[in-house]
Design a protein around this nucleic acid. Structure first.
Lengths: 233, 233
DNA sequence: CGTTCGGTTCGGGGAAGGCCGAAGCGTGCA
DNA sequence: TGCACGCTTCGGCCTTCCCCGAACCGAACG
């Protein structure tokens, strides 16, 4: 099977709004059940089941069964990157209506995007890292010398992440904020740290993250992020 | 129109092998006529015409008419990036059969990929830049301090490229070599330089680039690339 | 063991899409 | 003016696809 048929297979996978809605939902990095995806996409269970099977067939998602549940997740960081790049095509989109902003903003204070921080928190963190001189824009993002020690103090070794194959830093267009947040292995590491230190925690009901009081303090101290910037508003 | 329907529209655009073949052909950055695309994709002219119209509708390509010809090109660097990322999904692909390698290798000594160098030349240039210490892998590609002066001497100002919004350095999986070559604004700048200095020139018949004798000398002196590495073999 | 429930399979109706030959349309050239 | 040529439009055939209700399967639970 050559390049062409492979890309076309992925294209067919993403050629339907229901399936795209599922994939974009899965971008939060959390496994979803088939029925949750059905609700998300607005279709019945049988339809969703076929869609999932199809997404598996074209390599976009993977599944694991546990009891009578089947959990669906993206097949890997590469797939997440494809989806993010694809969403980036929408960038020159007209701003949403104010009411739509209001509606999504409520859900969008903080969440994960695949394996990194997103939503207002994610965007604020990237802004904070740039303002603090931890990162700098040099035709793409780079870590400054001071930034290395900043991450070290957080227990994140930049040099060991650099050794891996995955890109260290990557812009990822935030779906709700329409501005970039931090992706790549460093973004993932930062997200892990935020979770491990209890600065954010996953909420069971929704896919959103909750910022803890300790998290608000840490955001303020480390990055000068005002707590008010993170409130649901 | 929300994110979902936009991605799905692009997905439908890429949901057909003929259209994907066209888009991948257009990755060389050169405008193609509708009939050339028809031949490339192996369909008749009417079919190709409809495909092009459809690709225009979903924003993947743009067209300009000149006389009785219509020239088709990708809509922009973002589209090229999407296609390259998509091809990257194929990376863990089994190596091609040797005969297939031979066949493509003939076409693949040197060519452009959107706006940067590709083929054996492109891969060799990236390897050379890494070996020479001009670039380094640090969880993604970075320019070394020595590399900045190296590019300066070539008339390429890294710092002015850094000022732009476009990523400076990016890996792009070479479609024939199955190894990365250099993309991003620096890759594009390097390609321009190669063309401007007459180190490579576009061949009218095919989409390939021809490496000139001066180009072979320059490749050897600047990057230690053996001329034998660039021969069609 | 019977019920509940998440998920899959099946059948079928309706819509969309891919392909081509034939015909139509405009540009460029003699 | 007439012809050649690149491209588009039209009509029609066939396939694929999306969706759902109904039926089925198997795990969990009492």
């Amino acid at each position: 099977m050559n390049e062409v048929s492979l890309v076309a297979a992925v294209g067919r996978g993403l050629a339907d709004e229901s399936r795209v809605a599922m994939c974009l939902a899965l971008l939060d990095g959390v496994p979803w059940t088939v029925s949750a995806l059905a609700a998300e996409a607005g279709v019945r269970l049988p339809t969703a089941s076929e869609h999932v099977a199809r997404l598996v067939r074209c390599g976009l998602v993977q599944t694991t069964v546990s009891g009578r549940h089947k959990y669906v997740r993206l097949a890997g960081p590469q797939v997440a990157e494809v989806l993010e790049t694809l969403c980036g095509l929408a960038e020159p989109a007209r701003p949403q209506s104010l009411s739509a902003v209001r509606r999504t903003r409520h859900l969008a204070a903080a969440r994960t995007c695949y394996d990194h921080l997103a939503g207002r928190l994610g965007v604020a963190v990237l802004d904070g890292l740039l303002d603090a001189g931890v990162l700098r824009r040099r035709g793409g993002l780079v870590v400054t010398r001071a930034g290395r020690t900043w991450f070290d103090e957080l227990g994140i070794s930049v040099s060991s992440l650099e050794a891996g194959r995955r890109p260290l830093l990557r812009d990822c267009l935030d779906l709700t904020e329409r501005r970039p947040h931090l992706a790549g292995s460093l973004g993932a590491g930062l997200c892990s740290t935020f979770l491990a230190r209890g600065w954010v925690r996953r909420t069971s009901s929704s896919r959103a993250l909750a910022v803890t009081p300790a998290g608000e303090r840490a955001a303020g101290e480390l990055l000068g992020i005002a707590a008010s910037a993170l409130v649901v508003a």
